[in-house]
Design a protein around this nucleic acid. Structure first.
Lengths: 222, 222
DNA sequence: GAATTCATATTGTTGAACAATCATACCTGT
DNA sequence: ACAGGTATGATTGTTCAACAATATGAATTC
């Protein structure tokens, strides 16, 4: 297990700082899916009290990264096939809803262009980890086209869950690679204001991506 | 202030039971919007320890019914115009997405029919409070057409927030009344499998409802 | 080998204590 | 009188220790 130092003082409370740190570890796949997290043990590892860790657990449980079972403790979520399918259903509804509300010249659209180009650069260098991060940001920007903080919040939840899935797969490194060009293409279509075409491209992207994730999941878990 | 007895032992933990009880009170408008909730005071009112109440606050904060400000405490949320607009944007995206995925003979559709008729009955008796509750259930059932637990969860959040708005309005009693017939009509359209027509009806419903809520909000606050 | 009982460990909850931070009233100086 | 700073008091953030309630696992019994 990696070092669990949380000396890096984030703004806000200690519980939030630990939650943020633990979130990173979870998404990085440092914990096994389904693993039970003992309050005493984890509190010791993060050097916080049990009460504070409980608040951390509540935080991460509400973000669907942990699962709380009464009188049994908290466990790392283990997303299965159904979860992935559901996640992509949410993505489809929300992202299509956002794209359909696109107005030309929206700052989020400019951000999508920048991120799309950054992804191309990162992939040319072979930094697949960063490609994944940028890709996530790209899709977050897409949802921000809807100018809806609540839709963005909901989307962030499923995206975090999806990142957890990626982290739990072993070879997820260049799982995003084929979609860099699709993203760039989508940006152009949106900048031209061709909404229906953009929706079709998005649907194609989501379908391919979902299949890829499901395949990788079945390959590793069976 | 009303009695805060939480003797009714729900299943699950005490914190969850208190959170459920407090949720009811919040939605019933028993707390003023923007009101500060002192840990010591509220813990005393619910007869739980401060630590337990903190977990309750975390729960309700993650449900967007309370707002937590670091080192300042938690406050009852005070949804403004922008919040209502955003809530209806989420409703539009999610409910339209669900309706578009409707398959004939879905159990949720049958449930919508039942609820629509129950609403008609309740309104004929003049039980507006129940009309509101049934109406909420009706729309929840609509989202369940999508067979997506995550979309349902997200929808439940915004619906709870909307109920909080209703609770904070004083004359929100028969705010749902004009929509009983629209709901019944929408059920018929869906049962006939005419998805596009149903989407149009839903859009009309949401637009009218949003305007009604915004008007009531400005009447009472602005 | 299956079911029951008992012992152990973990979670759920409480109360008290202290540090850190914020709000308020008071005071000072010009 | 007023702006600014300071001290005081109250509230939140965090930790610790203890106990009750519940689940886990092993030993026992049939």
């Amino acid at each position: 297990m990696a070092k669990l130092s949380t000396k890096d003082l984030q703004n806000g409370s200690l519980a939030e700082a630990v939650a943020a740190r633990m979130r990173e570890l979870l998404i990085a796949g440092e914990f096994a899916p389904g693993q039970k997290l003992s309050e005493q043990t984890v509190a010791g590892q993060f050097e916080v009290s049990r009460n504070t860790l409980r608040e951390v657990f509540r935080l991460l449980t509400s973000q669907r990264l942990l699962k709380h079972i009464a009188n049994r403790g908290v466990f790392v979520v283990a997303p299965d096939e159904a979860a992935v399918i559901d996640i992509y259903r949410v993505r489809s509804v929300i992202q299509k809803g956002a794209v359909q509300a696109t107005v030309k010249g929206h700052p989020a659209l400019a951000r999508m262009r920048v991120l799309s180009e950054q992804a191309k650069q990162a992939s040319s260098v072979g930094n697949w980890r960063q490609v994944g991060t940028i890709n996530m940001e790209f899709h977050r920007a897409m949802v921000e086209l809807s100018d809806s903080p609540r839709l963005s919040a909901c989307f962030d939840l499923v995206l975090a869950e999806l990142r957890l899935v990626f982290g739990q797969l072993k070879d997820a490194a260049h799982l995003h690679e084929p979609y860099i060009e699709l993203n760039a293409c989508l940006v152009r279509t949106l900048e031209d204001g061709e909404i229906p075409a953009a929706v079709l491209q998005l649907e194609a992207y989501l379908l391919r991506s979902e299949r890829g994730v499901l395949a990788a999941l079945q390959r590793k878990i069976g």
